[in-house]
Design a binder for these strands. Structure first.
Length: 418
RNA sequence: GCGGGUGUAGCUCAGUUGGUUAGAGCGCCAGUUUGUGGCACUGGAGGCCGUGGGUUCAAUUCCCAUCACUCGCCCCA
């Protein structure tokens, strides 16, 4: 039986759920396109180095969450755990650093070897936006605006809060890191075990702790804002101003720290309380140093990734537009099935959704027509076939009329059916 | 990776203080209705009670392990 289960942390997307995914993707694609962002796709597999170099050697994603694939070559290959590094790699591979700015939208599966939970899968699906070559904060604002529009169009924005913070540039970040570490070292013994570990590996993440004891210690800690240099402060001011101008509400969260190494300056998260502990639904920030760490020129970058699975989970069945009712093709006997298929094709070519009913006589097939929610049925019996006609039945009123097959498209149009 | 909970029919869930053939509702199939559906009535199929092992005369029930889901932590979208 275990062989019949999907692999842990993966899911089948049956039509109902698939439509929610599709709605998220279609909405995002439409909005991104309206901002001039172009859709692209990178391979699902990459050399391990692409992520190792960029995400930071100590991040969980690199140290323990990547699916490594056995390959015949020597270079280790992995299933991509996130999208940005691959897109940055593609920019360099294709020599696109000469044609800035670059504006991209992408969508697809990512893979992380984690313990599955609600909203946390091993195969997860993301939409994402990347903007390369714009160091001005107007880029930050634009990218945030795209995210906001998408969430709004999905009807989810009322359940979602935008939190933002700045990490400052490299210099500010380093200064602050030193200060924070110095302070926390004095309190080392009182920190939670998790945070003690983070102090070595990624001290900034301690700011985001959920431990009450840690939180108390952090209250007295030097605030990040004081370590920001002039430039970093100005950047952040402009971002906040821009959001105000566009009337995008946000909450400052000085404890917001992105996990991935490549982030600097603006960091943001769209969060919800609807999904339990997996509250982040879309997140990102600025990553000016990313391309350079991969061995390319120094190019500014900013972007975000959104969790399709999480967003889709927030959608209700009613958020989906109802499927148009199909036309049911009803041969009265298997002998007329082929005639039915021919008739169906006629309707399909005219732009209608025509669904065949299979097996059984008239009564059984009418039942099947009801089940697929058809509004009209096209009955084909010996009489109809002999006279190249068809009986059109209104499945709501029961009213039916015999008409020549040639006329059916016109008749449907006359009834206003499309 | 760490800690807690759950696992009975396609779905939602009863139940068995360890003891013959494990139930309901919905859904599915068929019949009443062999050129007329929705409603109704009648009947039927479908479960190695997640999987493997142990204890016992006897296990779906108790114990252990395992798998999956789930809640929290870690991490992240």
């Amino acid at each position: 039986m275990t062989a019949l289960q999907p692999i842990r942390g993966t899911h089948d997307l049956l039509p109902l759920e698939f439509r929610k995914h599709a709605l998220v993707i279609d909405t995002a694609r439409k909005v991104a396109t309206s901002y001039g962002y172009r859709e692209m796709a990178t391979p699902i597999m990459e050399f391990k180095d692409v992520f190792k170099r960029t995400l930071g050697d100590v991040s969980d994603i690199v140290t323990k969450e990547m699916y490594e694939i056995a390959d015949r070559g020597d270079e280790p290959i992995v299933l991509r755990p996130e999208g940005t590094a691959g897109v940055a790699r593609a920019v360099m591979s294709n020599g696109l650093t000469q044609s800035l700015p670059l504006k991209y939208f992408y969508e697809g599966p990512m893979f992380r070897y984690e313990r599955p939970q609600k909203g946390r899968l091993r195969q997860l699906h993301q939409i994402g936006i990347e903007l390369f070559g714009v160091s001005d904060p107007v880029g930050d604002v634009e990218v945030l605006s795209i995210a906001y529009d998408i969430l709004k169009k999905l009807g989810l924005i009322q359940y979602i809060t935008l939190e933002i913070n700045t990490l400052g540039d490299k210099e500010s970040r380093q200064t602050y890191r030193d200060q924070l570490v110095a302070y926390l070292k004095d309190h080392h013994a009182h920190l939670s075990p998790d945070s003690q570990l983070r102090l070595e590996r990624n001290p900034l993440r301690i700011l985001d702790t959920k431990d009450e004891g840690d939180k108390k210690i952090l209250k007295e800690a030097p605030p990040l804002t004081e370590s920001l240099n002039q430039h970093s402060r100005e950047m952040f001011e402009k971002v906040k101003n821009g959001l105000n101008v566009l009337q995008i509400p946000f909450k400052l969260n000085p404890h917001l720290v992105r996990g991935l190494d490549y982030y600097c300056h603006t960091a943001f998260e769209f969060t919800t309380t609807e999904l339990g502990s997996q509250g982040t639904v879309l997140a990102g920030g600025r990553y000016d140093g990313l391309v350079e760490t991969m061995g390319g020129p120094s190019i500014a970058g900013i972007g975000w990734a959104g969790g399709i699975d999480r967003l889709a989970m927030m959608l209700k069945d009613e958020d989906l537009s109802p499927l148009p009712p199909p036309l049911a093709i009803i041969p009265m006997d298997e002998a007329f099935d082929m005639h039915g298929l021919v008739l169906a094709k006629l309707l399909q070519d005219a732009g209608y959704i025509a669904e065949m009913t299979y097996g059984g006589g008239l009564g059984k097939r009418l039942k099947k027509a009801n089940k697929i929610n058809a509004r009209y049925g096209f009955i084909l019996g010996a009489e109809e076939v002999a006279s190249h006609s068809v009986t059109l039945k209104d499945l709501e009123s029961g009213e039916q009329t015999l008409l020549p097959q040639k006329q059916i498209v016109d008749v449907l149009k006359g009834k206003g059916v499309l």
